[in-house]
């Protein structure tokens, strides 16, 4: 009837599932603790003497590398393991609505966790005069990156009923996306002499696209990069679910 209503119903259930189990609370606490640790200890927030959240955002690609797949790994593998996928896919909704609904729910959850880091924003505003526009951009970039990782976790989760496998595979894929734009990797590919391959791999790098956001620049190409990554991974999720059903 109304696809948006269906998506909302699915998302509501999924989001509820995070909060009725300890997953949400454990995740949020660990995420906030790690954020604090990275920002203040490794990032040397105070020693930098700089009114910005650069030391906060710079660790996000690494923090998300492990935390986001942990949120996304259960999306489909849990449905498959418990057999509820049979209920879900025989209800009068399309697989698309289910995929998008589930994805949006977990993304919303991650954005919520991210929003709970607001005390950092308050502190930095109390201590100095940061560029709040740049901080906002940083949050946007961070949320987009989390969404991209999440869509990959959704894809690997659709492949298996085993959450551990889903987790490991998506960490590996996300790790590849981090490495792709990394200097040593580009140099290595340079030495091969295949220019298009080097450019292709480098353009897949999450880091290069995330960097601009940290500096306070929202470039349409970077936004497009993350959105198309999400689109691609969700499309693959659909293909995997369809092919697994065909048995």
């Amino acid at each position: 009837m109304n696809s948006w209503a269906n998506i909302k119903t699915i998302a509501k259930r999924e989001l509820g599932a995070y909060f009725t189990s300890p997953v949400a609370y454990v995740f949020i606490v660990i995420f906030l603790l790690l954020c604090g640790f990275f920002t203040f200890r490794l990032g040397q927030f105070f020693e930098r003497n700089d009114a910005s959240l650069l030391s906060f955002f710079v660790y996000h690609p690494w923090l998300f590398l492990f935390l986001v797949p942990a949120v996304g790994m259960r999306l489909w593998s849990e449905e498959r393991r418990s057999g509820t996928i049979e209920l879900l896919l025989t209800m009068p909704i399309t697989a698309w609505q289910a995929i998008v609904g589930k994805f949006l729910a977990s993304w919303l959850f991650l954005v919520l966790a991210l929003a709970l880091t607001f005390p950092l924003w308050i502190s930095v505003n109390y201590l100095g005069n940061p560029d709040n526009g740049a901080i906002f951009c940083g949050y946007i970039g961070s949320a987009l990156m989390a969404g991209a990782y999440l869509s990959i976790a959704s894809m690997t989760s659709a492949m298996t009923r085993n959450q551990v496998i889903a987790f490991i595979v998506s960490v590996v894929i996300c790790f590849f996306l981090i490495l792709a734009g990394w200097q040593p990797v580009t140099t290595l590919l340079d030495s091969l002499g295949v220019v298009w391959l080097r450019n292709l791999v480098a353009s897949l790098g999450v880091m290069t696209h995330f960097d601009a956001f940290q500096r306070g620049v929202i470039d349409a190409r970077d936004v497009l990069f993350f959105l198309s990554l999400i689109g691609f991974a969700l499309f693959s999720t659909g293909v995997i679910i369809r092919s697994r059903r065909a048995g």
Binding site: G16, A17, S82, G83, T84, E86, L87
Partner: peptide, 15 residues
């Protein structure tokens, strides 16, 4: 039009 009870009666366990 269909109501379906799958084998083993799956249900979302945390709800």
């Amino acid at each position: 039009l269909i109501g379906y009870l799958p084998e083993n009666a799956p249900a979302y366990s945390d709800m």
